[in-house]
Design a protein around this nucleic acid. Structure first.
Length: 496
RNA sequence: GCCCCAUUCGUCUAGUGGCCUAGGACGCAGCCCUCUCAAGGCUGAAACAGGGGUUCGAGUCCCCUAUGGGGCACCA
C-alpha cells in the first residue's frame, strides 16, 4: 500500500513557520516513499476562519516548493479537500456513533459546563473538562429535551477505565489512562464537527496511512484511536513531531503572539515574512529540515532531493527545539554565494525597487560577484547599493583622503592621476581600472603599496566607510558620476 | 492540580552499551588574507541536568528528583 500523508492547516491566517516544518516533514516522508502528500483545509471553526487564508497558505507552500498531490485547488479522488464542504459526511458518522451507542447527545450549554468545571477546581481527583453529565441521561430525558428543541452537541463515550497505548514511530509506545480523556465534543451545535471527528473521518476516507502532526496532539490521540475502533476502521500510524519553541525557549512559537529572541529582537514567524525579508526558499527548507532532524555525515547544507533520499521518521529527535535563526542567515548567505549572477540580479531587483533604488540589470551584473559573499539576505542589497544614489553622497573632508602612508602631497598627485584615468580610460572596466589605479597607488604611497590609496579612493567614490570594492563601484557609478565625485576630492585636496 | 512528552557546548545537532580524551554547524574569540565590509583559511573557548541502580563497562538501559515544554474548549 502506498504511503499517504496530509498536511491539514486551518485557514486562520498565514502559514506559520512551525506549520511549514510539519508540512515539510510530511512532504519529505511522502516523497521518500513515492507516496502522496495531501493538503486538506480544516475550516470547521467558522469563527476563526479568515477570508483569503487558504490562498495565502497555498502561496506560501508553493513558494517553498512543497507541492501537494491532492488538495482544494487540484482536487483528487477523495475530495472535497475543504472540511466545510464535507459537513454532511461528518454529521452522518456522528449520528452513526450515537445509534451504535458510542456517542451521546449533550444538552449542556458551554456556560454550564464551564461553571461546573469551576466548581470542581479544588477536587484534585477530577479531571478538568466535561463532567459527563448527559452521558447518563435516560432515553426519556433525552426525548423530552429534544422535544423542547434544546440544542445539543454530540459527545464521544470515552471508555472510563483501562489504558490506551499510542504506538508512536518517533517516541515508541505512549500509554495514557482512559480516565484522563474526557468525552470530547464530536459534533458542535452548529452542526459542524470538531477536529477530533473530522480528522478521523477524513483520514479514513482519504486513506491516510501515517499521521505526522505536532506533539501537542499526543494527549488527544487516545480519543482518536477509540474513535477508529468505534467505527471499526484501521488506525493509521502515528508520529508526533517535536514542537517548535519560541527563541526565548518560553512556550511554543505562536502566530498569535509575537515572538522575540534573547536580544529582544522580534523574530519572523510567518513564511511570507521570510520571503519578504529576502530569504531563499531553498535556504528556508534546508534550515527547517535541520531542526528536529539531521542529514547526517556532519552536513548542514543539502538539497531537498538529498534530504528526501535519506529521510526517516525514526531519526527525528523527539525533543522540542527553538529555531536557530542565526543559522538561517548563514545558510541563506551560502545559497546566495552559489547563485548564478543573473539569477541573483533578478532576485535582488524587487527588493531594490521596493526601496526606490533604480539600478539597471547591467550595473547589477557588474556588482553581482561582490554582492554574493556579502549578502545574508537579498534585502541586504539595498544597503549595499545605496552609494549609487546621488542624494546619499556625503560631503568630503580632507582628513578622509589622507593618512600617514598617503600624505597630502602624495594624495593630491595620486588623485589627480586617478581623475585623468577615470575620464579617459578605455575600456571603462573593472580590470583596466584596477590595473591603472593600483599602479598609481603603488607609485605614491610611502610604503609603495596600493592599499592606502585605494582605501581613500574608495571613500571618495562611495562616500561610505563600508562599501563595495572600489573598481566595481566606479564602473557601477559610471564614468560621469565617478568623475564628478572624484573632482570634488581633487578640488578639496588642492585647496588644502 | 492531574496527565503526557522531553532533557548532549549559548543555539541547532551527531551519538542506539566499549570506536567518546563526546564529533559537526551557527554564533563567539584570536590569527592569516585584505582598498572598507564581507567571504575564505587556520586556531581556540564551550556540553552528556542531579542522584541512585543494571552491567566487566553507561551520554547511551531502568528508577527517582529537578527543569523545560505540551494538554486538560461546542479552537485546531
Amino acid at each position: 500500500m502506498s504511503v499517504r500523508v496530509r498536511f491539514a492547516p486551518s485557514p486562520t491566517g498565514y502559514l506559520h513557520i512551525g506549520g511549514a516544518r510539519t508540512a515539510l516533514f510530511n512532504w519529505m516522508f511522502a516523497r521518500h516513499h513515492g507516496g502522496q502528500f495531501i493538503l486538506r483545509i480544516e475550516d470547521t471553526d467558522q469563527k476563526r476562519t479568515v477570508p483569503g487564508a487558504i490562498e495565502a497558505i497555498m502561496d506560501a507552500m508553493r513558494w517553498l516548493g512543497l507541492d501537494w498531490d491532492e488538495g482544494p485547488d487540484v482536487g483528487g479522488p477523495y475530495g472535497p479537500y475543504i472540511q466545510t464542504q464535507r459537513a454532511d459526511l461528518y454529521r452522518e458518522w456522528a449520528y452513526w456513533l450515537v445509534e451504535h451507542g458510542h456517542a451521546y447527545k449533550c444538552f449542556c450549554t458551554s456556560e454550564e459546563v464551564a461553571k461546573r468545571r469551576e466548581s470542581r477546581q479544588g477536587d484534585q481527583q477530577a479531571i478538568l473538562g466535561y463532567d459527563r453529565h448527559c452521558r447518563y441521561l435516560s432515553a426519556e430525558e433525552v426525548a423530552a429535551k429534544e422535544a423542547q428543541g434544546i440544542p445539543y452537541v454530540i459527545r464521544f463515550k470515552m471508555p472510563l477505565e483501562g489504558t490506551t497505548t499510542i504506538p508512536d514511530i518517533i517516541r515508541g509506545d505512549i500509554v495514557v489512562d482512559n480516565g484522563q480523556v474526557q468525552d470530547a465534543v464530536l459534533l458542535k451545535s452548529d452542526g459542524l464537527p470538531t477536529y477530533h471527528l473530522a480528522n478521523v473521518v477524513d483520514d479514513h476516507f482519504m486513506k491516510i496511512t501515517h499521521i505526522l502532526r505536532a506533539d501537542e496532539w499526543i494527549n488527544t490521540a487516545p480519543l482518536h484511536i477509540h474513535l477508529y475502533h468505534a467505527f471499526g476502521w484501521d488506525v493509521p500510524a502515528y508520529a508526533h513531531l517535536p514542537l517548535v519553541l519560541n527563541p526565548s525557549g518560553k512556550g511554543k512559537l505562536s502566530k498569535r503572539a509575537q515572538a522575540f529572541d534573547d536580544g529582544g529582537q522580534q523574530v519572523l514567524v510567518k513564511v511570507e515574512e521570510f520571503r519578504d525579508a529576502g530569504y531563499l526558499p531553498e535556504a528556508v527548507l534546508n534550515f527547517l529540515a535541520n531542526v528536529g532532524w539531521a542529514f547526517g555525515e556532519d552536513r548542514e547544507k543539502f538539497s531537498m532531493a538529498e534530504a528526501i533520499a535519506r529521510f526517516r521518521l525514526e531519526d527525528i529527535n523527539p525533543a522540542p527545539s527553538r529555531l536557530p535563526y542565526g543559522k538561517l542567515d548563514w545558510l541563506n548567505g551560502q545559497y546566495i554565494q552559489e547563485m548564478e549572477s543573473a539569477a541573483l540580479v533578478e532576485a535582488v531587483v524587487p527588493f531594490l525597487e521596493k526601496a526606490g533604488l533604480d539600478v539597471s540589470r547591467d550595473v547589477l551584473m557588474v556588482l553581482a560577484d561582490s554582492m554574493k559573499p556579502r549578502l545574508k539576505r537579498l534585502s541586504d542589497a539595498v544597503d549595499f547599493l545605496v552609494f549609487l544614489r546621488d542624494e546619499t553622497a556625503e560631503p568630503l573632508a580632507v582628513e578622509q583622503l589622507v593618512d600617514k602612508k598617503l600624505p597630502l602631497d602624495a594624495a593630491r598627485a595620486a588623485f589627480r592621476e586617478a581623475l585623468a584615468i577615470i575620464q579617459t580610460i578605455e575600456p571603462f572596466s573593472v580590470d583596466t581600472l584596477g590595473e591603472q589605479l593600483r599602479a598609481i597607488g603603488e607609485r605614491h604611497t610611502t610604503n609603495s603599496k596600493a592599499g592606502p590609496f585605494l582605501g581613500k579612493m574608495r571613500f571618495a567614490i562611495t562616500r561610505q566607510r563600508i562599501s563595495p570594492p572600489l573598481f566595481e563601484s566606479i564602473v557601477a557609478l559610471g564614468r560621469e558620476r565617478a568623475t564628478a565625485r572624484l573632482e570634488e576630492a581633487v578640488k578639496l585636496l588642492e585647496t588644502a
